[in-house]
Write a protein that binds this DNA or RNA. Structure first.
Length: 522
RNA sequence: CGCGGGAUAGAGCAGCCCGGUAGCUCGUCAGGCUCAUAACCUGGAGGUCAUUGGUUCAAAUCCAAUUCCCGCAACCA
């Protein structure tokens, strides 16, 4: 089985990361961890898009060189990923020389093959916005509004990429490959957009008089590349594409990674960038239909009602949320309260509830009460014995059912449903305690064997939960296992789950609350 | 008639693809328990599954129409 190559959009280093950036990276990280859990080799690539006019302007404003400016902003991203446990294998920074060389090699090749051409464009140019204006920017009266400042007629040469010859192919490809875009309904959006696309080619350059902060065109030094062959190409360059031509060493083996199994992006950059430009770029470079990647298009976190709690601070700052609820608390919320591909409303009340009621009251409390009883009654030692009954069997069945249903949910990006499966075990185990009342069994000498079996079932069930939730809450699952006195054996895979992972005589640890209640006046 | 998404208990949502007693989290009310992070368990109240029509023995689920909300292209996940 080939490695699982998963990418995310690379974030534009013009401002600090917000909740949406965090969601996308955590989503990809959860899938990467899940794939590792099922034993697959994973290459997880994420990074930052550092070139462009906005960066150049922001850097000027801050009195920094563009590189110094992006380095500073980039640190906010890398620090957040470290904090949130986003564990990537490759870091795609577009100012990386390795990347620049590949982009130049790609462009040179397309140029040599006649897929690029130079043309003069004449139009209305806003000096203030530093961009050409189209009819869309015209106001009701047909003139450009004051917000554009001085508008002049300007003539400018630029390089273009021939996209028109591929538009019909793309339509056919999308229709015949429903797997290309997930969720499927987004494909209709793309096809609809393509109908109005005409025969537009893509402008891929800016003259250096206007933009210097970019990758120079190798065949025409008076221009730098503009956006797409820089930003989108990261998925190729950092996977080892054209490494030899570019003189890059120690790169991944491209042939084994491509096509990417999942390219996780937001719905805003599907059209036209990822669903139009990107596949056409790939095709122009010679990739076949079978070598097209799969796009995973996620929705947005909206702030409905704009209700922001002062006591929580700026509620959409992922750093503040991670400080309050822990990195894994935030990861849990971000994965649980949204269906992949759809939008959700961010709610500070909901994250507080998810943390206190579900993580604290549900999972955390289950662990804590189990360990307390085991330590009080049995010095934390597991005894398996021969006692069994229907109540025990029912709990084992719940565990088995959840583990049977879990993989399909995760594979299909229904992360919230995967979590639900794990939670069925948590709920059943809490109910199991009420049914069996180990605290009563402890007072009855003759009930000793049953008490042993009850405590064993609880500890074992929790161990199973930590495996299912491992991709979502890696740190907390490990902490739980520490308290259980148990660790995942080296090379452990999902299929290695079985009843009896905690052997007779196993020594449990001490219970310390892992999700201490957060008290906030919302 | 541009396209797409949504409409399910007080709130937020799942279920819809593959029709068969309407489910989850929270809130609320009443009990229970006492091992536990003021937590846990049980039960109740609360829903004409937006509307209308169709297919069917049977529709939240399939089909058709209607209404209302939310998005929709350039450097913003």
């Amino acid at each position: 089985m080939p490695p699982y190559y998963i990418t995310t959009a690379i974030d534009y280093t013009n401002a600090a990361p917000h909740i949406g950036h965090a969601y996308e990276k955590v989503l990809a990280d959860v899938m990467a961890r899940y794939q590792r859990l099922v034993g697959r080799e994973v290459y997880f690539l994420t990074g930052v898009d550092q070139h462009g006019q906005k960066v150049q302007k922001s850097a000027d404003k801050a009195g920094l060189s563009p590189q110094a400016f992006v380095d500073g902003v980039t640190e906010h991203f890398t620090a957040l990923w470290t904090k949130l446990g986003v564990c990537y294998d490759g870091w795609a920074a577009t100012t990386d020389d390795k990347h620049k060389r590949v982009v130049q090699a790609m462009l040179q090749r397309l140029h040599d093959e006649g897929q690029l051409y130079k043309q003069t464009y004449k139009g209305s140019y806003s000096v203030r916005a530093e961009q050409f204006l189209t009819d869309k920017e015209r106001g009701e009266d047909g003139n450009f509004g004051e917000e554009w400042g001085e508008v002049v007629e300007l003539e400018e040469d630029n390089w273009y990429f021939r996209m028109s010859p591929h538009i019909e192919w793309l339509k056919d490809f999308i229709r015949s490959h429903p797997q290309f875009i997930f969720p499927a309904h987004r494909a209709n959006d793309v096809l609809n957009a393509l109908e109005n696309f005409g025969s537009m080619d893509l402008c891929i350059s800016r003259p250096i008089e206007r933009l210097t902060w970019g990758i120079p065109l190798p065949f025409d030094p008076r221009f730098v590349n503009y956006v797409w062959f820089d930003a989108l190409a990261n998925y190729l360059s950092f996977a080892g594409y054209m490494a030899e031509e570019a003189g890059n060493t120690t790169m991944p083996d491209f042939s084994s990674l491509w096509p990417a199994a999942a390219q996780v992006i937001g719905k805003d950059i599907l059209i036209p960038a990822h669903a139009v430009y990107w596949p056409i770029m790939l095709r122009a470079l010679g990739f076949s239909d079978e070598q097209m990647p799969q796009l995973i298009v996620h929705g947005w976190w909206n702030l409905k009602g704009g209700k922001i709690s002062k006591s929580l601070g700026n509620v959409i700052d992922p750093n503040a949320l991670a400080d309050t609820f822990g990195p894994d608390g935030l990861r849990y919320y971000l994965m649980h309260d949204i269906a992949t591909g759809y939008d959700a409303d961010f709610s500070d009340e909901r994250i507080l509830m998810a943390y206190n009621k579900e993580l604290g009251g549900g999972l955390g409390n289950l662990l804590n009460r189990t360990l307390k009883m085991a330590n009080n009654y049995r010095q934390g030692r597991i005894a398996t014995g021969t006692y069994d009954d229907d109540i025990n069997a029912a709990l084992r069945q719940t565990v088995a059912d959840a583990e049977a249903a879990y993989p399909a949910k995760m594979e299909s990006w229904a992360i919230h449903h995967g979590i639900d499966e794990a939670w069925k075990i948590v709920t059943a185990a809490n109910g199991f305690i009420e049914q069996t009342a180990p605290f009563k069994l402890a007072k009855d000498e003759s009930a000793g064997p049953r008490l042993d079996s009850v405590l064993h079932h609880l500890a074992e069930a929790i161990a199973h939960v930590t495996v299912l939730l491992q991709p979502i809450m890696p740190t907390m699952c490990e902490r739980i296992r520490e308290q259980l006195g148990w660790a995942l054996p080296a090379g452990f895979q999902l299929k290695d789950l079985h009843w009896g992972m905690l052997p007779a005589g196993h020594q449990l640890g001490e219970g310390v609350p892992l999700f201490p209640r957060v008290e906030v006046a919302v």
